[in-house]
Design a protein around this nucleic acid. Structure first.
Lengths: 138, 138
DNA sequence: GAATTTATGAGATTCCATATCAAGTATGCG
DNA sequence: CGCATACTTGATATGGAATCTCATAAATTC
């Protein structure tokens, strides 16, 4: 079967998390694995009519907490998920189609790190978003 | 009366916007004028029991659109408002008490501006958030 | 394979925000 | 001023997203 390797990875991940390996979770994970960009929880839910909404949301949270997914919030507050590529990154958000893409920029990181010293209080992390009109929308 | 100057400013602002000067709007604006940091719409609504929820939200939107208020979204998606000081700024968000404060950093702006050239698509704007534990929470 | 623990999902519920619409009121004009 | 008109208000209904409930189902353990 073509999805064996995905299932295997999901299984070992779930085991590591101390969570049970279940059909619904596999179905969610399989769909996630096929995703390229960002997506909303509700969109995912609609693509999985045979999995309950609660389970979809629970699995999303499970995987976000596990660091497999990256949860972002659009300027209007609506959440988006994407596969977390684990290296630190920021987001390009298209104001037109609301697609989220990643970017990295070492000079930016360096500066933000330097800035931490000047900020009152203890800096825990940061987030940078660039609002763009993406190539496709142009 | 002590609030006369605030009322005057509110009146001229509303006139400029082509909106009517009404009691409820003044009450919202007066409360806003007394605010220091950031606040949620619902908190504001609770502080104004004699103004309808709809009106509070409508006025908040009116003033945000007018640029008097600045609407931000916390990482978890909940919206916060604060007086817009009109110069470009970013936010320090305390992960503990969820208070939002402003900061400015010219070197950061310069770098972000330079970065725009390297980004695919057309850059419209940006947002930077630093997550901190604020002095008060430390 | 029986016991135990965890997961599921339909439906109810919560929360925040907006829409509805009749009643109220600011503003313009005569 | 006082009326007509258009805008505003707010109690309530509605909307949409996400979570909670809890009886049932499934996965692990032994």
């Amino acid at each position: 079967m073509m999805t064996t390797s995905v299932d295997d990875r999901v299984d070992s991940l779930l085991s590591k998390l101390g969570s049970r390996i279940t059909g619904p979770r596999r179905r969610v994970a399989r769909l996630l694995a096929s995703k390229q960009g960002s997506f909303s929880a509700e969109a995912l839910n609609e693509e999985l009519p045979d999995v309950g909404r609660a389970t979809v949301y629970r699995t999303l949270k499970l995987l976000s907490d596990a660091g497999v997914l990256c949860k972002t919030t659009l300027p209007d507050g609506s959440p988006r998920y994407s596969i977390d590529h684990s290296w630190h990154h920021h987001h390009l958000i298209c104001s037109s189609c609301r697609t989220v893409e990643e970017f990295r920029h070492s000079a930016l990181e360096r500066l933000l790190c330097e800035m931490s010293a000047e900020i009152p209080g203890q800096v825990l992390g940061h987030r940078v978003e660039l609002y763009v009109t993406c190539m496709r929308c142009l």
